[in-house]
Amino acid sequence: MEINFLALLLAALSTLVVGFIWYNPKVFGNIWMKESGTTMEKMEGTNMVAIFAMSILYAFFISFILQFLVIHQFGVFGTVEGNVSDPQYIEFMKAHGTAFRTFKHGALHGFMTGLFFALPIVGVGALYERRSWKYVLIAGGYWVVSCMIMGGIICAMQ
């Protein structure tokens, strides 16, 4: 199994596209700003290039681990400890090499990862930060949708 770095990069970049839409004032942007305590004055003067660069880096980290959750063949690869010459691995890959390598399947696993991993992380942090449920649903919802799209991209690009 080889890591598809192009797929991981595209998946990471997709989070910016989702964010531009999700946090647009006409979608959830105004509500998020109110619930997070952010104002336009606070946003001005920030280094947006650095923020976007770090956002892409963090999203790349997420996409890197997400590939192991959305591509089942990595599980088999791990089972044989990376030994691609293992007869069981060879037979499995002959029989099931690209099974479940679709956008739809990756999106399903990405959705589950977002819902059962990312959303709870946002939720726990929000509890201690005394954030509202609106904040949790907006910020967590962003990661559910982002993980879903990332998973689809990663799984479909072979």
Rank of each mutant, 00 (worst) to 15 (best):
G141N: 12
I71P: 00
A50C: 00
Y58L: 11
Q67F: 02
T46G: 01
L57F: 14
Q88L: 09
F68I: 02
G82W: 07
A50L: 14
T46M: 13
H109S: 00
G114V: 05
I71L: 12
R101N: 13
M43Y: 02
D86W: 04
I121G: 10
V76A: 11
E35V: 01
V136N: 06
Y135A: 09
F61Y: 08
Q73K: 11
F52D: 00
M54S: 07
T46V: 14
F111N: 07
H96S: 15
Y135I: 07
E44F: 09
P87I: 07
S85W: 00
R131S: 11
I56W: 02
V76N: 03
T113K: 01
Q88V: 08
F28Y: 15
E81G: 00
E91N: 13
H105D: 14
F117V: 12
L119M: 14
N30M: 07
G45Q: 05
V27C: 07
M33Q: 14
I90E: 15
L66R: 05
G106I: 05
S36Y: 02
Q67E: 09
G125Q: 14
A139P: 00
G106D: 06
H109E: 04
M54R: 10
F64S: 09
H96K: 15
K42E: 13
M40E: 15
V144G: 06
L69Y: 07
G123W: 15
G125M: 13
E35A: 10
M48H: 04
Q67N: 12
S55W: 00
S55T: 15
H96V: 11
G125D: 05
P87T: 10
G141S: 06
L115F: 13
A53C: 02
F111K: 05
V122Q: 09
N30L: 13
L115N: 09
F117H: 03
G45W: 02
E44I: 05
I121V: 15
M33S: 09
E41C: 01
V27I: 15
A99Y: 08
E129K: 15
K34A: 13
G37V: 08
F60G: 06
F77T: 06
Y58G: 02
M40N: 10
I90G: 04
F61M: 14
T102E: 04
F111S: 05
F28V: 10
F61N: 02
V122A: 07
S85V: 01
Y89F: 15
L69V: 10
H105T: 14
I71W: 01
A59K: 04
I138A: 07
F28A: 01
G75F: 07
A53E: 02
A50Y: 00
M112D: 00
F103W: 08
K134F: 01
P87N: 04
E41F: 03
L66N: 05
L66E: 01
G29M: 07
M43I: 07
G45L: 04
N47S: 11
F103A: 03
G140R: 10
A59S: 15
F111I: 02
A99L: 14
M40K: 12
